[in-house]
Design a binder for these strands. Structure first.
Lengths: 206, 206
DNA sequence: GAACCAATCTTTACGGTGTTAAGATAAGTT
DNA sequence: AACTTATCTTAACACCGTAAAGATTGGTTC
């Protein structure tokens, strides 16, 4: 019994691919995404980048949209962890809330094309891609919980409105930064101070 | 001298087109845009809709992007007039501000694909298309003036931040509604009451 | 009027795209 | 070893953005 012949080592075997191409397509897609933008991203290009023929992706994703949905899902996971990172260790509910917003905006700043993909028209009606829906809902629920913690005695309706307002504020700022309509600086520190100034305008995190 | 042979009547002459095709391309583009979305909009499709060959648009627009820029410019004009409409007749600066925000969101609600095009990645770096830049700046300046009127004694810096926050809030709400992530109702009245609730969260229009 | 010019439109063509259908190869199972 | 199944390739289709070259038109000048 030889050692290396089982599929123990999923690296590039010469002939047919047979590693986990699915994963490699997603990472290649993310790579090309930040380089060329959503519009410049082609399925054939991803296949090329992965060193595989043009039709190969169709054995792992039903569609180009399905691959983009997988990339977007990874994006939402990254968004959530970025929010968690910046809100960790906050001593007040307001500071925690501010951290969530800062993380949201920082993520958009650092992954502009990915952020655009995540909120693009493609998934506006996302009855397919349920795992995308759940992971996106996770990100949203972090915000919701943060808002609720800031207003202990508020009614359900008040919390909903405050939550929608907070989400809109943070999402709009991210979008405007990504689209270069607001200049919030060039470093992550710049972005964070900008985020703090912005979110301070809401009574929630005051 | 015959009457109808001059280009007095720019309607469809049978053979070659010779009306103002440029205008017709823009309106045909807007029509297809709301039907098929930005991604589903093809230059060939626009030419087809205008009843003209596929290469004809290139005599009026340098590019597909140039046509989209013209459509987007019309969009910003519409956005400005919608904001003007909803803020007209307000008696206080705060009410005026609220009207501007409501108009912004209502426009997005009523022209989702156009709104997406206007803020798409295509014009993020818009050193070309200067008329697009100016008409977009007009919309922004309406917001800026509204914010400044709400805070007479504020410093330049304070006004800028309040302005960015207001813009972010309103823009984010529009984007989230267009992307179906926030359900703000189905009628324009629904949208307006939603907009009022949201903007009331900002100290500017309190 | 005729001759010319510039603008506008068409036909044709090229390379790129998403996607499907048919065949080749590898891995796993009996 | 034979068979099955998953994976990958090649080839093809219709569509797209765009450029080049030719046709048609309206306007201008004699």
């Amino acid at each position: 019994m030889r050692m290396a012949t089982k599929q123990k080592n999923p690296s590039k075997s010469a002939g047919y691919h047979h590693g986990d191409l699915k994963r490699e397509l997603v990472t290649a897609g993310r790579r090309l995404l930040e380089k060329s933008g959503v519009e410049g991203l082609s399925l054939r290009g991803v296949a090329r980048e992965a060193g595989v023929s043009q039709a190969a992706p169709y054995h792992h994703f039903e569609d180009k949209d399905a691959l983009l949905a997988a990339i977007a899902a990874e994006g939402f996971a990254g968004l959530s962890s970025e929010m968690a990172k910046w809100s960790a260790g906050a001593d007040t509910a307001g500071a925690h809330m501010g951290g969530l917003g800062a993380g949201y905006i920082v993520f958009a700043f650092e992954n502009p094309e990915l952020f655009r993909l995540m909120h693009g028209p493609r998934f506006a009606v996302a009855d397919r891609y349920d795992d995308l829906l759940t992971v996106a809902a996770d990100s949203f629920n972090m915000l919701r919980d943060g808002v609720a913690a800031c207003r202990p005695g508020a009614s359900e309706k008040e919390i909903e409105i405050a939550c929608q307002a907070a989400w809109s504020l943070v999402h709009g700022a991210s979008m405007l930064i990504v689209d270069r309509r607001i200049d919030a600086g060039t470093t992550v520190d710049d972005i964070v101070t900008f985020a703090n100034q912005i979110t301070k305008q809401l009574p929630v995190s005051g």
